[in-house]
Design a protein around this nucleic acid. Structure first.
Lengths: 243, 243
DNA sequence: CGGCATCTTGATCCAGCTCAACCAGCGTGG
DNA sequence: CCACGCTGGTTGAGCTGGATCAAGATGCCG
């Protein structure tokens, strides 16, 4: 598979062949992170931008009482920390859900890229805005959606995001999170996630087995979740990929 | 009061007198919006960046079933929609809580500003990142904090943000939201907000009367809320203002 | 084959919701 | 200047989604 970052950015702004080459050049040698370990710790002050090339990760906050809140999910092509080289220190950690392959773009390389290509600069900017929109939508989910709606919404979102980077197989995609992870993300117990999953299965909407998710009735699932792709801000290219 | 946007940006990056003047110049004539009306509707495609000069506003999503989720609060100095001129259409609305005085910076004026002053460019960038961090913290609140913790956290955050722009009077600050608004923001009923407020009052932590909030014991409130200012990413200037 | 992580299931409990009044302040028009 | 109506705050009673606690069941990996 080619660079998933290029694939993703292309969903926001059409990139030239030249842009893709620059992007590939800017990426320094990648490193591997084992599943269930931290990519970045809270309090770290790193210097380069990490990009997920393969695997899933999550931003999370850990509380003293053991409770963990997953704040967002990072999929292939997602930059982990576009901010980091601007802010003083991390206010959260990033952990690998599966084994993760990371690419890195140094601060200078990044400045060079965006200076050279306005397309790329625009694409990075839109990417950041779309990420913010996704974050807002999570806020909406946690604040206003019921358990089953939340989970349904998450599945809709994940499928759409994976589709945009070409990682779906029809209505099927990867779903490597444990029920515990899902609970941490949805602000619920794994016990309750379990029961909610059974309900979704019982309604014939999804199958989730051996870390693969199949959405049997996308329209019905989206209706249940009050899911509307608009907030993902995918352009034609992104939607075409999703089809 | 001088420009609250300058005040706020100065909390992220020290600005020169020149920077402040440029900023003031870039701001086109301001407009007034009545309380309880929309500043921007969902689906709009506006061209300029709105900045709150006076008053409070909120981003929100309205559901068909009448439920409303407030996704973030906008205080004086906050840009409403740094994104808008990049994305296709609004995925949420922005509504005025109090009467709001808006300034506007056009896209070209913005580009001009950031091209002329690297300090300003940096400040805007950090502002955006701090906003994202606040959004993540809301996700944490809705996902992991109990009712009383959530409300306590909101009060801590608001006081800190207002302090950074010089709008506090010791431990007292404005709090113009109705219990209904608070409910929409915290993903709870106004009835339950009411009872939670009584609990906070009963614990002697706060007074909230005639739209003014006083925090009697900031340390205790922060402890209850698991509040840690780090995520606001205020620099020395911001913290000094907060003191 | 044994050990550990994950998933299931059951029983009980409680934070927060719903529904339904009722009260208080305040702006408006007669 | 008062009566009225409206918005926002308060209170009570009963209900429920999801938490908690506890035990198994399943399945994967060394």
């Amino acid at each position: 598979m080619p660079n998933p970052l290029a694939h993703k950015l292309n969903c926001y702004v059409g990139l030239s062949e030249d842009d893709r080459m620059c992007l590939a050049d800017a990426m320094s040698p990648s490193r591997m992170v084992a599943a269930r370990t931290d990519i970045i710790h809270e309090g770290d002050d790193p210097r380069a931008i990490n990009v997920i090339l393969e695997g899933w990760a999550c931003r999370y906050r850990q509380f003293a009482n053991g409770r963990r809140q997953v704040v967002s999910l990072l999929l292939p092509g997602d930059p982990c920390d576009p901010h980091i080289f601007l802010l003083d220190e991390m206010d959260h950690a990033i952990g690998a859900i599966t084994p993760v392959l990371l690419g890195q773009i140094t601060g200078p390389a990044m400045r060079d890229l965006t200076a050279r290509s306005p397309q790329l600069a625009m694409a990075f900017h839109r990417e950041a805005l779309a990420t913010a929109a996704i974050q807002r939508e999570w806020t909406v989910s946690l604040g206003s959606r019921t358990g089953i709606e939340r989970l349904a919404h998450l599945f809709c979102e994940l499928h759409a995001r994976l589709a945009a980077i070409g990682l779906t197989d029809g209505n099927t995609c990867a779903m490597p999170m444990t029920q515990n992870d899902l609970g941490d993300a949805m602000g619920q117990t794994s016990v309750h996630i379990n029961r909610t999953l059974q309900e979704l299965r019982g309604m014939g909407l999804i199958t989730l087995r051996s870390r693969r998710l199949t959405i049997h009735d996308p329209a019905a699932l989206a209706r249940l979740a009050h899911f509307d792709t608009a907030y993902l801000h995918l352009t034609e290219a992104g939607h075409a990929a999703a089809r």
